[in-house]
């Protein structure tokens, strides 16, 4: 078996939340290309139907299962239907989440309801989805779980209180779960993504990518190979890891802070 065989997902069934569009859709298509059957899940039926059709067009089985990840009963039904339609769940990618109402304002201006809604969408949703897929994975004797975090779960950002706290929660939840279930051959990792704008407005608001060390935004398809790798047998030794794909943002900070002028050693000629 070569390394390219171990980087495949043949015969695996992947459940991907938030896969009606954007990064979740990109992962669904990359997984299908790598040989996986895919359960597409999101709140908008028309979108997941379309992505499921794209997966089928690649010759893989697909199901479109509508769910609201902030409702644990809905999550339970999503997992039941996934098992009923495709027979098993080998991979869970919990990709649903994002900024919610009120975030980006100073804390004293955020209502408790807005705060809780954000934590529900980003952190508690991960708990519900993972809790629901663990029993079938334990029964199957293996599993891969990928959560999506952010550089904002590792560093602070002014007024993004809910988002930074929730994503930090996702990261450390991932680490602890990795220690709980690693011995049952379930690997749980998280991807912290840099800026992958999904709208023109986002791209403009984020300055066209010029403050990112590599000088550009992430392109949506670029998440695919990294996610495929992390859910493949090639990553069996990777557990509880935070995998960051951010154009050098966390390594160097936003430019120009990751830069110093020439400073020769004392006595040396410049």
């Amino acid at each position: 078996m070569t390394v390219l065989d171990r980087l495949r997902l043949d015969g695996r069934v992947a459940l991907i939340t938030g896969s009606g569009r954007g990064l979740g859709r990109a992962m669904a298509l990359a997984f299908a290309d790598a040989g996986a059957d895919v359960v597409c899940s999101a709140r908008t039926q028309a979108e997941i139907d379309a992505v499921a059709d794209e997966v089928r067009a690649k010759g893989r089985r697909a199901a479109a299962v509508r769910a609201d990840v902030t409702d644990s009963a809905s999550v339970e039904r999503m997992v039941e239907r996934s098992l009923a339609e495709l027979g098993r769940i080998d991979i869970l990618v919990h990709n649903a989440g994002g900024r919610t109402a009120g975030d980006g304002r100073p804390l004293h201006m955020i209502s408790e309801a807005d705060w809780l809604a954000g934590i529900d969408a980003n952190l508690t949703s991960a708990v519900s989805c993972i809790r629901a897929v663990i029993p079938p994975m334990l029964e199957q004797g293996r599993g891969k779980i990928l959560t999506t975090a952010s550089g904002l779960g590792l560093r602070g950002n002014r007024d993004l209180n809910m988002y930074t706290a929730a994503k930090a929660g996702v990261i450390n939840l991932t680490r602890s779960l990795a220690l709980s279930y690693g011995r049952h051959n379930i690997q749980i990792n998280t991807m912290a993504l840099g800026l992958f704008p999904q709208t023109e407005a986002q791209a403009t608001r984020w300055g066209g990518g010029r403050y990112i060390p590599v000088g550009r935004f992430g392109t949506t398809w670029e998440i695919g190979p990294v996610a495929v790798f992390l859910c493949s047998p090639a990553a069996d030794g990777i557990n509880g890891a935070v995998i960051v794909q951010d154009g050098g943002g966390l390594a160097g900070g936003v430019t120009p802070f990751g830069w110093a002028p020439r400073i020769p050693l004392p006595g040396a000629s410049a």
């Binding site: 990553a235 990777i238 557990n239 509880g240 951010d246 050098g248 390594a251």
Partner: peptide, 29 residues
């Protein structure tokens, strides 16, 4: 368990840089 991570990074499209992939079976988690 290590070689796949090296191949993934070697084949990357260029947005993955300055980062660490830990292949340690959760040792540093």
């Amino acid at each position: 368990e290590v070689t796949g991570a090296v191949v993934m990074l070697a084949a990357d499209s260029g947005y993955f840089t300055g980062q660490v992939v830990a292949v340690d079976g959760a040792a540093t988690a």
